[in-house]
C-alpha cells in the first residue's frame, strides 16, 4: 500500500491475483478498485453475472465464492485472490442445460432474463443445502434477488420443479453408479 516510487498514485498500484473461476485458474493484474463483477465480465469475458444496482441490493451480480452466494458488485476483484468463484456459466454443460435451467425454461421462471443468472445461482445454492424445500422456504430464499417481471410466482414454481428434477437426477445417478457432474 505505501506510496512507493513503484506506485506514485493509487491508480498505478496493481495487484497480481489468481482466481479459480468455474474450475479454471486465471492470473491477472487488477487495480485496487476493480469490482469482481467487472473482472468477470470485462477481463474474463464471462458475461453471465449482470450489473444491476451496483450497490448490493438487486442480486443480479450474484456469484458463488467458495460455494457461498455473494454480491460481486460490492466485492473487489483483489479480494477474490485465491478464491473459487462459480458463475452461471458453470451450470450448463455445453448445449445441455442444467435441470434447474430446464425448469426455469419450462415453468417460465423468467421474462426479460436480467435477474436470471443471480436467481439460478441463488436457487442452486439453496438446493445444495436443502434439496427438497417447500414453497415458503424458496420464496424466503430468493427474497435476496429482485425480479421486476415475473412477480416471483413462476420463479418459485421453477425452483420447486428444478429441485424435483435434481433429486430425480441424483437418484438416477446413484442407481447407475455414475457421479453427477453439475458442480464444477
Amino acid at each position: 500500500m505505501p506510496e512507493t516510487p513503484m506506485s506514485p498514485t493509487p491508480m498505478s498500484q496493481r495487484h497480481r491475483i489468481t482466481v479459480t473461476v468455474n474450475g479454471q485458474s486465471h492470473e491477472r493484474e487488477v487495480e485496487s478498485r476493480r469490482l469482481l463483477v467487472d473482472f468477470l465480465r470485462d477481463d474474463l469475458h464471462l458475461k453471465g453475472a449482470h450489473i444491476g444496482c451496483e450497490h448490493g441490493v438487486c442480486g443480479t451480480c450474484t456469484v458463488l465464492c467458495n460455494g457461498e452466494s455473494i454480491r460481486s458488485c460490492i466485492t473487489f476483484a483483489v479480494q477474490a485472490d485465491g478464491a473459487e468463484i462459480t458463475t452461471v456459466e458453470a451450470l450448463a454443460s455445453g448445449a445441455v442445460l442444467h435441470p434447474l435451467q430446464e425448469a426455469f425454461w419450462e415453468k417460465q421462471g423468467l421474462q426479460c432474463g436480467f435477474c436470471t443468472p443471480g436467481m439460478l445461482l441463488r436457487a442452486y445454492e439453496m438446493l445444495q443445502r436443502d434439496p427438497d424445500p417447500d414453497a415458503a422456504t424458496v420464496r424466503e430464499g430468493i427474497a435476496s434477488n429482485l425480479c421486476r417481471c415475473t412477480g416471483y410466482q413462476f420463479i418459485v414454481d421453477a425452483v420447486l420443479d428444478g429441485a424435483e428434477r435434481m433429486r430425480a437426477g441424483a437418484s438416477a445417478a446413484a442407481a447407475s453408479g455414475s457421479a453427477e457432474t453439475v458442480d464444477s
Binding site: 500500500m1 491508480m11 498500484q13 485496487s32 469490482l35 467487472d38 451496483e54 473487489f76 483483489v78
Partner: peptide
C-alpha cells in the same frame, strides 16, 4: 458507479493491520 482509485492492502495479522493504520494515519 465505480469507486474512485485507492491504495489497498490486505494484512494477514492484526498487528500488521495496526502498523498500516498508524503508518498511514
Amino acid at each position: 458507479m465505480k469507486p474512485p482509485p485507492f491504495y489497498y492492502a490486505a494484512p494477514a495479522t492484526v498487528s500488521e493491520a495496526l502498523s498500516l493504520l498508524s503508518e498511514h494515519r
